[in-house]
Design a protein around this nucleic acid. Structure first.
Lengths: 180, 180
DNA sequence: CGCGTGATTGAGTATAGTCAACATTTGTGG
DNA sequence: CCACAAATGTTGACTATACTCAATCACGCG
């Protein structure tokens, strides 16, 4: 299983990064950082100096394009999150997050197969969704009772992918899977 | 007064663009568009072909950097919106939006001066904040009663910038004003 | 074991939504 | 310019979703 981290200004998450993601492309060309990164699971981080990255972004079009794609995908995911938080109920939001994590972990659009470790506490899930941990807990229980997921503590399993997907109104398009 | 438009997937806004902004940098290197643009006020739009833009992004580092900065600022604003919608109450959210618009319109961090035309209906404001138009209406009335704003239909005036700013917990840092 | 973190549950509250009526403004054709 | 229609704004009564506070439980670990 990969490495997880979250972008968090204060105590609200605006992104989840997984293995292989760039962590701070957002500040590539901005002078003032407006967020910081919180590690959820331990992992290895490669550090590259800012000027070196900036040079790469132009001198090597292939690399530069990769930076662009990664940045734009992250922005696309951000828009989806915004939509998620702004428009959906707690239940839909949580279902949507579970769908996203499942898909991004398996890198396929039908992560029916196995269970996976949810590397976040309910408190952190709440931060990501703009919900209290108490409510997260209640919603999780409900999703379970409805047979959409199984869980044993942090270990989650998508029990009914189609159902979960439908409930969340999830469409993986925004993840731009084929491009990363 | 400038031109306004909104990025909207379905019926929820994820960004507001103003005069001089790039409209669709987000899709510069992504093949599948995941949102569309809705014009709020009439205005002139310059269209540039995608390949031409892509070439510019690399052949002219100065231009390329400008693209990067614009994109990253938009992402930064997106993160702030996410925080706004996810963590703040309706009142705070609305106050925050008013602050952002006032600042971006005047391009200064103390837009005390004049009133400005709010080019959105209450319905659209609601879309931007994840609120119903009914609630937007009530909150606006409240902000007015508290002396933070004045308004005469679409014409808004910041009556108490410091108060509004404090209520919204607004900090213009995320707009990266000096860089655009 | 005993502590600490995280999970679970209950009771009461508050914020925002829904539905519905009505008022006002804006836009349009005559 | 007027008259009407459509869109937007305003208000009230009621509901529902999610929050708060608080207590209790379960596990992980020294």
């Amino acid at each position: 299983m990969g490495h997880f981290s979250m972008k968090t200004p204060g105590h609200f998450s605006t992104a989840i990064n997984m293995s292989g993601d760039f962590l701070d492309l957002q500040n590539l060309f901005l002078t003032e950082s407006d967020h910081n990164v919180q590690a959820l699971t331990s992992g290895v981080v490669a550090e590259v100096s800012l000027p070196a990255m900036q040079e790469l972004a132009f001198k090597r079009p292939a690399v530069g394009k990769a930076f662009w794609v990664a940045t734009l995908i992250e922005a696309s995911i951000g828009r989806e999150w915004l939509l998620n938080v702004g428009r959906r109920s707690a239940t839909e939001r949580l279902a949507h997050l579970l769908c996203e994590i499942a898909v991004r972990l398996t890198d396929t659009d039908t992560p029916a197969a196995g269970d996976y470790e949810m590397p976040m506490t309910q408190e952190q899930i709440g931060d990501a969704l703009g919900l209290t941990s108490v409510h997260v807990n209640r919603v999780l229980k409900m999703l379970q009772k409805q047979g959409l997921i199984n869980r044993d503590r942090r270990r989650m399993q998508v029990a009914d992918w189609k159902g979960l997907r439908a409930l969340a109104d999830f469409n993986e398009r925004y993840l731009h899977l084929n491009q990363s």
